[in-house]
Design a protein around this nucleic acid. Structure first.
Lengths: 191, 191
DNA sequence: GACTGTTGTTTAATTTTTTAAACAGTGCTA
DNA sequence: TAGCACTGTTTAAAAAATTAAACAACAGTC
């Protein structure tokens, strides 16, 4: 549950074949500090930790990308074990859109969805366009969908794909007369 | 390129509609500290930053995951624009496995692949099992595949899915007589 | 064995962060 | 306009992190 800064640093340092003194020199600090950090006897300032990681080199994002890793949970999911998301999108409540998620999200940074859009389904326009702090992408499995991202718009067919910064307002709309199915991924998760 | 801790915290706090004092109380610390952090007049210890984020709440991984703003790149991808990855997996070189990636990865933390396994394809066993520092998941689109993760093994069929910590050694193998197609996602990206 | 070069750990002094409280500015209302 | 409640900022004292140097343990070599 708790993210162990000291242990993580030690593992990374050893994986790179560096001694505490070698890393300290590269990072421009003392070996004692690194020792204390690895023992969790001090909590480094973000500035210090960045200096340390600069000697690896590694970004803070990478360092913390394994924050609170859940223990071994469910790995395999039968089709009917994907969980239907209760969405705040009106079209989802009307039953024309379905988002089925792989596993639960606790502590995860990756969200994978099996999405289904009935003919006419629309995630919302104007001020209701989707917008969140992630990056996301997906691949069309079946049917066609119109995707609007910012001021760009495109109709994607089976096998086509998309990838964008979710902070741009976006919208999915099924203009066809067939169901559209796609698989999407998002990090960090939305909802 | 530099990550601005203070600015990031301020944006997050304001987005959650909290004043410095409200956040301080939730986090169990003083408003002055939060003010100083937001002005980058001190660099909080990781312990302190975790306390602050605990009042949001947000994990360190999430805090640091949004390093910088990705520029506007390609958003839409036609099926034939997905880029075939040159893999170090022997079976890929033999042409029985294909990994096609959505977009390029520059600065991205999310990787989405369209994977194709011919009958008999195998990503490798024993010391050649896949292992990397990510979390990954996927959904089976077509055919069947045997997935081994750590000491667990399962045959997944169309519509089934998986999700695991990629540091566990894993292996994909197509035991059937038909092609298996799946869509996977991974963060941070592999390769 | 003693010397040399490593390793990680510990300790006292220094530097930095954090606290607690005061300060300054805004907006609302009687 | 005074009073109140709320912002965010600043400052001296307390607490914690960092340094520099000493310490202990292990391995290889002469």
């Amino acid at each position: 549950m708790e993210f162990d800064v000291g242990a993580r640093l030690r593992v990374i340092r050893e994986k790179h074949g560096l001694s505490q003194r070698q890393l300290a020199q590269r990072a421009g600090m003392t070996n004692g500090t690194i020792s204390l950090i690895e023992q969790n006897r001090t909590s480094p300032s973000v500035a210090s930790l960045r200096k340390v990681l600069g000697g690896i080199p590694m970004t803070l994002a990478e360092f913390f990308s394994h924050d609170d890793l859940p223990p071994a949970e469910q790995i395999f999911f039968h089709n009917d074990e994907l969980v239907e998301l209760a969405s705040d999108i009106p079209a989802a409540r009307k039953g024309t859109i379905s988002f089925r998620q792989v596993g639960d999200l606790r502590g995860r940074t990756l969200q994978i969805l099996h999405e289904r859009y009935e003919p006419g389904a629309d995630t919302g326009t104007g001020r209701n366009m989707l917008q969140h702090d992630s990056e996301e992408g997906g691949i069309i499995i079946e049917g066609e969908i119109e995707l609007t991202v910012g001021d760009q718009k495109r109709i994607l067919k089976k096998g086509d794909a998309y990838f964008f910064d979710s902070r741009l307002p976006h919208r999915f709309r099924n203009l066809g007369d067939r169901v559209c199915v796609l698989v999407s991924a998002c990090t960090p998760p939305y909802l």
